[in-house]
Design a protein around this nucleic acid. Structure first.
Lengths: 116, 116
DNA sequence: TTAATACGCAACCAAATGGTTGCCTGTCAA
DNA sequence: TTGACAGGCAACCATTTGGTTGCGTATTAA
């Protein structure tokens, strides 16, 4: 329905997030390359890529008989922005601290649960 | 599998995102209240809430015969942070600009598609 | 030209998902 | 105490999802 919906759905699957990770590590890979360590059939990977394409998270380009896949960070960017602004507006300044930490030496953790 | 997985899955459904929106608008609502305008059976909403609870996105508290639901922003926070840092590290400074815009008057849009 | 490579298409399958209905339990108020 | 109200549980159903296999097509290399 929403345009985000496709993105959320695409991100809902671990295999697809893994594919995004791999593309982030090295952009412009072919289907075959993306299949390599994955314990999944080529067609399964192709289907996942189709979902990612439909969500506009991955774009591709023909090169001869190869299909090179490229990651598109914009939708994630938008969603992250939206959900940060909608959910965490009061804590947005925490991101400044995050930025500081990232530019600094090490990352530390912070609290997790607060179930009543 | 991952701890994020439950969160991503939970966020994948529009109805559940809507429930989170409603809780964000007013925290501590009962099942019945959350059902009100939703064109879904009470049990369907209860199931969605169960998914959100399992992802630790919603916590609840008994009060007599009522069950008050509370939103927990931490998991989204964590995911947003992770995905921003993993995907957008080079653009992290854009968040500073975002913060400026949010503290300023109006929000403008930016580019969408870039399929080849 | 032939064969190997890289991918697409379609059918099929099991399991998960989102939803329903029916009925049961606990709590509050008359 | 007796309803009415808020919610829980379980069975059931249709569709979607994630995956497979089999076969077909285009491109490259021998």
């Amino acid at each position: 329905m929403t345009d985000d919906d496709a993105v959320f759905r695409a991100l809902a699957d671990g295999s697809r997030r893994l594919l995004l990770d791999r593309l982030r590590a090295r952009d412009g890979q072919t289907l075959g390359q993306l299949c390599l360590g994955l314990d999944m059939s080529r067609q399964a990977v192709a289907k996942h890529l189709a979902v990612l394409e439909e969500a506009n998270l991955v774009a591709w380009q023909r090169q001869g008989r190869e299909k090179l896949h490229f990651i598109n960070p914009v939708p994630i960017h938008q969603i992250a922005r939206r959900w940060i602004t909608q959910f965490d507006l009061p804590r947005l300044d925490a991101l400044a601290a995050l930025k500081d930490r990232l530019e600094g030496p090490e990352n530390d953790e912070q609290g997790k649960d607060n179930a009543p």
